[in-house]
Amino acid sequence: MSYYAGIDVGSLTAEAVLIDKDRNIAAYAILPTGNNSQKAGTDAFRTALGQAGLAEADVSRVFSTGYSRARVLQAEDSKTEIACHAKGAFYFFPHVGTIIDIGGQDSKAILVGKEGRVINFAMNDKCAAGTGRFLEVMAGALDVPLDKMDDLALGSKEELTISSTCTVFAESEVVSLISQGKAPADICLAVSRAIARRTAGLVTRVGVADSLVMTGGVAKNRAVVKILSKDVGHLIKVPKEPQIIGALGAALFAREENGR
């Protein structure tokens, strides 16, 4: 049987997704990118192959995406993460209109039309405010595991504000809140709110469609999703594993190109 793969090597994590010829997901892997993006792509690919019990020869075509898309050795071609997230989100949610993807160093809002085709998109400016890296830095400052931040935030009792949109300045705001003895839960909520506020601006710029889907690592933070839903006035759906959507999109493109 022939399989297709998508490898997404981003600034913080690398993902690989394998799909079969009927577009079913056979396996996926998520690994930290580390300091060697080429190796990260290869490792993610091999891990996914191992899980599915497949060999490289079983995969007829590989596409890459993400910031290191041009460096993925196994890939025949590459697509931008904008196209791939649109494609991947469409796979799970065929009625999707607007996609919000917050990855390691980029946040974006994508307006899609039929078949998940990109109509318009808006991305953060040069700065990393409101991205996954922002969240990671704040988790570090708070000494809270990244994946526990939303649990904490959702139990917040006091409303605090982080006003700076700059990651470096926001971190010092967090540090000063800590020194004032504020509860980590409340600070976590303030951090989530800062990200949501910044992202809501992007979403408004491309247009809010009825069906919103959020992808990328930050979508795993339920507090951010909840606040963002409120800010844009629509329920935001999140796929079960939002982090693999880019790689899934790349795999779907690989399969399509093969059919041509």
Partner: peptide
């Protein structure tokens, strides 16, 4: 100093795809 190849080219590529 205020330019990033990867950021600009990702945006341009996505635009060209669209």
């Amino acid at each position: 100093r205020v330019y990033s190849d990867a950021q600009v080219e990702t945006r341009l590529e996505a635009f060209i795809e669209s």
